[in-house]
Amino acid sequence: MNDNPHHDDPLRDRVVAEQGGSPDTTMPIVVYALHLAGIVTGGLTALVGVVIAYVYRGRGPSWLDEHYRYQIRTFWLAVLYFTVSAVLTLVLIGFVTWLAAVVWLVIRCVKGIKGLQEQRAPDNVDTWLV
């Protein structure tokens, strides 16, 4: 189920385009940066980033809203992956899964930033992987 009521709304995209210029991608870039900074802040900045994504979702063209949806999914999946890794550290494999989760997070953020630069939605928004 799509949690964004404006997903693929061509009328809204046309209205946004008629308002002039390309949409500002500063906030989505900030959210990706906050997700990445969460690696060293224990997730605190990622929490701030997901709040920003929730606030800004629905205010731009559908491709930009897909970035916010992707960022929100990335946050919640990261919470799951890092929690599982924390539990698995009790049997020592958690250090490997934590490293895999870090790599996963970096790849998702880089893919998202690349999509922003190309002014298109990120690929595979609904995937649990990259």
Rank of each mutant, 00 (worst) to 15 (best):
R108K: 08
E18L: 14
N4D: 08
D65W: 00
V31P: 00
R108F: 01
E18P: 07
L116E: 00
F95Q: 08
E18H: 13
T45F: 03
W76H: 08
A46P: 04
A100R: 09
P28K: 02
H6P: 07
W63I: 00
T45K: 08
V30A: 04
A37F: 09
R120L: 02
T97C: 06
H35V: 08
G38H: 07
S62T: 05
V79W: 04
P10C: 01
P10K: 02
V84M: 05
I72H: 02
Y70E: 06
L99S: 13
V125F: 04
A53V: 04
F82M: 07
L90G: 11
Q119V: 07
W76P: 06
K114E: 15
T74Q: 03
V51T: 11
A17N: 10
W76Q: 08
N2Q: 14
V106G: 01
S62C: 05
T45S: 05
V15A: 10
L44T: 10
L99T: 09
G60F: 06
E18A: 15
V15D: 10
R69V: 12
G42M: 05
E66K: 08
T97W: 05
L77W: 12
G60M: 07
V31M: 02
A17I: 09
V84R: 07
T89D: 10
R14W: 12
E18V: 09
R120D: 03
H67L: 02
P28M: 05
I93R: 10
L44K: 08
S62K: 04
G21T: 11
G43M: 04
V15M: 13
A46I: 04
L34E: 01
I93F: 07
Y56L: 14
A46C: 05
Q19M: 15
L129P: 09
H7V: 05
P122K: 01
P61T: 11
R69M: 11
L47D: 03
K114H: 15
D9K: 01
V30S: 03
R120Y: 03
W128V: 11
Y70P: 00
Q71W: 05
V16R: 12
H67R: 03
T83R: 12
L47Q: 12
R14D: 14
V30F: 02
P122C: 05
G42A: 09
A53C: 05
W98N: 10
V79I: 14
K111V: 10
L47M: 14
P5D: 00
M27G: 06
Y70R: 06
V102Q: 02
V106K: 04
G43P: 02
A100Q: 06
Q119S: 14
I29N: 14
D126H: 12
V84H: 07
Y68S: 01
K111E: 13
G115L: 02
V102I: 11
I113L: 08
